[in-house]
């Protein structure tokens, strides 16, 4: 009655940040096609633990594609072969019996590997922190319709705000550039009236920190858009370029 998958896994094992890593071969048997990719790894880890071996470290939290924790490159594609999907929402039915899967962490200097498939993504947090705050009145609720937002702007801002900060754009980019991430964050605020007040300072500061963190330069290859689990478009990168040019030209303290 079993129609489970038998797979060969080549997983990146690295003890800690300072040690060297390498791909190690594993076999998993009788994997249900209904399992998620992470459940497949859970199965492997249970087996490893029962054999007294070190389980494969990988990040996960919500497992429903919204937290941005899971992060691994499967056969050369961040979050695996399915478009618009995080690896936790990728199901094993996407693979065939006998497949070999190469599983690696995000690779970027700005995302050092902590262990196995887990990378340090606090560079993103520092970019967000550099973006600062928006001026919004807190306390009592604002009057309904007091701040008018065109529907188109609201939708574009929402599309950009869908970014979960997972870092797949950096992983996919041949230059390890974080432009799509920064573009999404800059876009979702600069499109809305609440974010306009600090727009110039925000874009200059965020790009500055992005560069300092050691991400690469965008060369418009569009790989990020292809791999983004939230399908953020490079139209946002154009908006980031636009906002940056405007801010650079107008800033008085550069």
């Amino acid at each position: 009655m079993t129609n489970g998958l038998n797979l060969k896994l080549k997983i990146w094992r690295q003890k800690n940040q300072s040690s060297d890593g390498q791909l190690k071969d594993y076999h998993v048997k009788d994997i249900s096609p209904d399992m998620s990719f992470l459940e497949m790894l859970d199965t492997l880890n249970e087996e490893l633990e029962s054999n007294g071996e070190e389980p494969v470290a990988f990040e996960h939290d919500c497992r429903e594609g919204i937290c941005g924790s899971c992060s691994m490159v499967v056969n050369g594609k961040p979050h695996g072969p399915e478009r618009g999907t995080t690896v936790c929402q990728l199901h094993m039915r996407r693979f065939s019996d006998g497949d070999t899967l190469v599983i690696e962490p995000w690779r970027a200097k700005a995302f050092p590997i902590i262990k196995d498939l887990v990378v340090e993504r606090s560079a993103f947090d520092r970019i967000i922190a550099a973006g600062g705050f928006i001026t919004a009145r807190t306390g009592s609720a604002p009057d309904g319709n007091a701040v008018q937002i065109p529907k188109e702007h609201a939708e574009l801002a929402m599309d950009a705000a869908a970014c979960i900060g997972c870092g797949a754009c950096v992983a996919a980019c041949k230059n390890a550039s974080a432009m799509l991430f920064v573009a999404a964050k800059v876009s979702h605020l600069s499109l809305l009236p609440q974010g306009k007040v600090e727009a110039r300072k925000r874009v200059l500061d965020m790009v500055k920190v992005m560069d300092q963190e050691g991400f690469g330069n965008c060369t418009n290859t569009q790989a990020c858009e292809v791999e983004c689990p939230k399908e953020i478009k490079i139209e946002n990168i154009a908006r980031l370029n636009r906002e940056w040019i405007k801010a650079s030209a107008a800033a008085r303290d550069v």
Partner: peptide
Amino acid sequence: QNRTARGTKYMHKDASGANFASRSM
């Protein structure tokens, strides 16, 4: 700068839809 930003290379990397021209500038 871009090569440095990648650091360790991938063992296996797909072009993720980026065409030859854009990858070989």
